[in-house]
Design a protein around this nucleic acid. Structure first.
Lengths: 195, 195
DNA sequence: ACAAACCAGACGACTGGTCATATATTTTCT
DNA sequence: AGAAAATATATGACCAGTCGTCTGGTTTGT
């Protein structure tokens, strides 16, 4: 990674942290460059606009999550349903800090979907990636017999992921674990662990 | 309703529409007064700040929803679970326009929870109100025997409402009905309509 | 010596909020 | 009842500050 790419990455990291808590419109270019300790004029050397920054930031968080998923959701030594469970539990940690901040993709989705088409499309794509990863695990579970819900995996995955995003959102306002606990309590029920 | 209250209400209505689509920070005082066709100086006759406007707007949408709920969720001539189902289905209509805009409470939750404590607390309260309404219906269903999930009504209600908010959010980005369909397909499953 | 990367400062537009003034409305006094 | 005084409401010009973006000179690397 070149020096330039390193600096850009740093700008992305620092700015992301600010934008995740203060939102797109609540974050100024100055906020971003200050957080990264980079001169203001430099911003446009790396990004052609604020919107462009947001899109690249969106890509970065998803890339990081995909990395995380590959280790967790793709780990064939753990039964698929157990992996899925762990995937959500693991994200409690990310969400404890996430009680402040929450899910950046979710934030951008709510705030920007109606204002910026580029951002909306990128958000949609990122959301789809995540849903697909869940669907894959569900399909795997169906093949090994641990899942036999009458509901299609795609539908199940879509529901689960949206419910999870809603849970994260609620945690932002309530600042407690209750929403997450409710989600984790319902998860096995939905996956059809019939008594 | 006095002339003053009428004008304030109009300001609230018009501004709400703008703020629901452009977000808090994406909406200026000028945007609000322009939408209501009211001179800018008048804004501060009715609201002591932009933040105050948002809080009052939050109260207004919830008040309207409570009215709606009282008619629907509180209608004892329909079986409780059927009422709940209809409550969500009914909101598809609201959400078709909501494919743009989405849930104002959800928007404010994501964008402002970490920036304004007053708004966060109001959002939390409004979210609780909604959850409580669902919990009440679930309790009713438990009493008449149509619900016998082993999971506490409070947990069930919390999960369902959060999942629904997540569904609304996803619809903002995807601009289609699929998320809603997935939710409605899973709803009976969660309420425990065992085959 | 040359091109590419960098960045201080400036740009005009716009921000949330204020305020003096102007217009209604209500109260008081005759 | 009607005039006058007092109070409340209305409003657009205006404030200091910030916004996203751009320009044009300076530094850096070759």
């Amino acid at each position: 990674m070149s020096k330039r790419e390193l600096k850009k990455d740093h700008l992305l990291d620092a700015g992301l942290q600010v934008m995740a808590t203060r939102g797109y419109n609540g974050t100024s270019i100055k906020d971003i460059v200050d957080a990264a300790d980079v001169p203001k004029g430099s911003f446009y050397t790396y990004f052609k606009s604020k919107e462009d920054f947001a899109v690249e930031a969106l890509e970065k968080v998803t890339e990081e999550r995909i990395q995380h998923n590959r280790h967790l959701l793709g780990n064939r030594s753990i039964p698929p349903l157990e992996r899925l469970n762990r995937f959500f539990i693991d994200n409690i940690g990310e969400c404890d800090q996430g009680i402040k901040g929450g899910c950046f993709i979710g934030n951008m989705c709510q705030e920007m979907s109606d204002s910026s088409e580029v951002i909306r499309l990128k958000v949609r794509q990122m959301l789809r990636n995540n849903t697909q990863a869940i669907e894959d695990v569900l399909e795997e579970a169906r093949l090994d017999g641990s899942l036999n819900s009458p509901i299609a995996s795609a539908v199940l995955a879509e529901f689960l992921f949206n419910a999870w995003e809603g849970t994260l959102m609620r945690m932002k306002a309530s600042k407690c674990r209750e929403p997450m606990n409710a989600f984790l309590m319902l998860l096995p029920e939905i996956l059809g662990n019939r008594a």
